[in-house]
Amino acid sequence: MKWIVGLGNPGTAYAGTRHNVGFMAVDALAKRFGISVTQSKSKGLLGEGNVAGTKVALLKPMTFMNLSGESVRGYMDYYKANLEDLIVVYDDLDTEIGKIRLRYQGSAGGHNGIKSIIQHTGTQIFNRVRMGISRPEPGMNIADYVLSNFPKSEADKVASMVDQTCDAIEYALTHPFDQTMAKYNR
């Protein structure tokens, strides 16, 4: 089974924020694949289905960003899920707004959700899709920035980025991740 974890913060107050693009991507995948992500499991919301002959699980941790690893670990333990079948989707300050970057390993890069996953899984080796939110203007607080909503002027770039993320993940369901990286890291 392939499992896709979108990182974000629960609650309507965070729904449209930069930090919640991982949730946005999972919601878009759920719509695309006809999967309902409403089952409460492993400290998150879970949905399962079949896509192109592959069993797929979509997970949105409800632990808040900094504790995302608790939900990931809980899912791994309960379902005996393999890390090589995991794809984590999250926001990235160092990637330009509207762009995505795929990686299969690396440090947390200052992202507390990824740091929590590394802590709870004991490894930095897992597939990732980083969704670009760009850095804020000099002097703006990072926490305030990532918890701010996207302005209307960025709506088209965000929508395109979510679609591209979904395309990459759908491709990764039936292709090795290194091939997916070669196709989508441009």
Rank of each mutant, 00 (worst) to 15 (best):
E96C: 00
R186N: 08
D156G: 03
I118K: 01
L7Y: 03
L67R: 13
I118R: 02
P61A: 03
H111Y: 12
A13I: 03
D144S: 13
W3Q: 00
A30T: 11
E70G: 00
T38K: 15
G6C: 08
F150S: 12
T12H: 01
K55V: 06
K157V: 02
S134K: 02
L59Q: 07
V56T: 09
A30D: 04
G47Y: 04
N149R: 15
M62Q: 15
Q39H: 14
V89H: 01
R18Y: 00
A81Q: 06
V88R: 01
P176Y: 01
A108R: 07
L86S: 01
A28R: 15
I118W: 06
Y75Q: 09
L173I: 02
I97V: 14
F177D: 00
T38S: 15
A28C: 05
E154I: 05
N149E: 13
K60N: 04
D92K: 08
N66D: 07
Q124R: 12
T121K: 09
I142K: 13
I125V: 12
D85R: 08
G11N: 04
A25R: 02
V5Y: 00
V146R: 14
F177M: 14
G106V: 10
G74P: 12
N127D: 02
F177G: 07
Y90H: 15
K99D: 03
F23R: 06
I169H: 09
E48Q: 13
N141R: 11
V72E: 04
K2T: 07
S134G: 13
Q105H: 08
R130S: 05
Q105R: 14
P138K: 08
T38V: 11
G106P: 09
M131C: 14
T63M: 09
K99M: 05
E84T: 10
V37P: 12
G74W: 10
S160C: 10
F23I: 04
Y171H: 15
P151V: 14
I169G: 06
N141F: 08
G106R: 10
K41Q: 12
Y184R: 09
Y104T: 06
A15C: 00
V88E: 01
E70N: 12
T12V: 02
G44N: 11
V158Y: 10
F33T: 00
T54V: 15
M1T: 10
K60P: 04
G109N: 13
T121H: 00
T63F: 08
E48C: 06
Q124S: 11
G6M: 02
V26T: 08
G22R: 07
N149K: 15
D77Y: 06
D156M: 12
T174D: 08
I100F: 06
L93Y: 03
I87G: 03
R135D: 00
G109M: 13
G49E: 02
S107R: 12
K115G: 07
W3S: 01
I97L: 15
W3E: 06
L93P: 10
N149V: 05
G110P: 12
I117R: 00
A30Q: 08
S68M: 03
Q124D: 10
S68N: 04
F126G: 02
A168Y: 07
S71Q: 05
A182Q: 11
I142C: 06
G106L: 13
T95F: 05
R18D: 05
G106I: 12
V56H: 09
T165I: 00
Y79W: 13
Y171F: 15
G6Y: 02
M76I: 14
N127E: 02
F33N: 04
A30Y: 10
F23T: 01
Y104W: 05
R32H: 09
C166T: 08
